[in-house]
Simulated scan of single mutants.
Amino acid sequence: GAGDLDARVNDPRTADPARRQDEVAVVAGALDTMASALQRKLQAEQRFTADVAHELRTPLTGLSAAAELLPPGRPSELVQDRARALRALTEDLLEISRLDTGTEHVDLDVHELAPLAARVARGTGTVVEVTGEPVRVETDKRRLERVLGNLISNAHRHGRPPVVLTVDGPVVTVRDHGDGFPEYLRAGGPQRFRTEAGGKGHGLGLTIAAGQAEVMGAALTFGNAPDGGAVARLTLPHYVRLDGEAP
Rank of each mutant, 00 (worst) to 15 (best):
D22T: 04
G211R: 00
L234T: 00
A67T: 09
V130N: 08
H105D: 13
D179A: 07
L116P: 03
E104Q: 14
R122G: 06
G125E: 03
D107R: 14
L42E: 15
P226R: 09
A197N: 07
V27Y: 11
V27K: 05
Q212G: 03
E133L: 15
A88V: 12
G149M: 08
R160M: 05
A66T: 10
R84K: 14
F222M: 09
Q212I: 02
T101H: 02
E145G: 15
G223H: 07
A246R: 14
T126H: 06
L144G: 03
R157V: 09
A83Y: 12
Q46R: 13
I96M: 06
A155R: 00
F193G: 06
A28D: 08
A53S: 12
T195F: 09
P247I: 00
A83M: 07
V127H: 07
L113I: 01
I96W: 01
V135A: 04
T139I: 10
A219Y: 09
E245M: 04
G169P: 00
V137G: 02
V79K: 03
D109A: 15
G62I: 06
A246H: 12
A85S: 08
G211W: 00
L148D: 01
V172D: 00
A44L: 15
E133H: 14
L242S: 15
E245F: 05
R157S: 10
A18C: 01
G169H: 02
G189R: 09
A44S: 15
L151A: 00
K41Q: 14
E77A: 15
N10T: 12
R233I: 11
L234R: 00
Y184H: 10
Q212N: 04
G180P: 07
T126G: 02
A213K: 01
F48T: 14
G73I: 13
E145C: 10
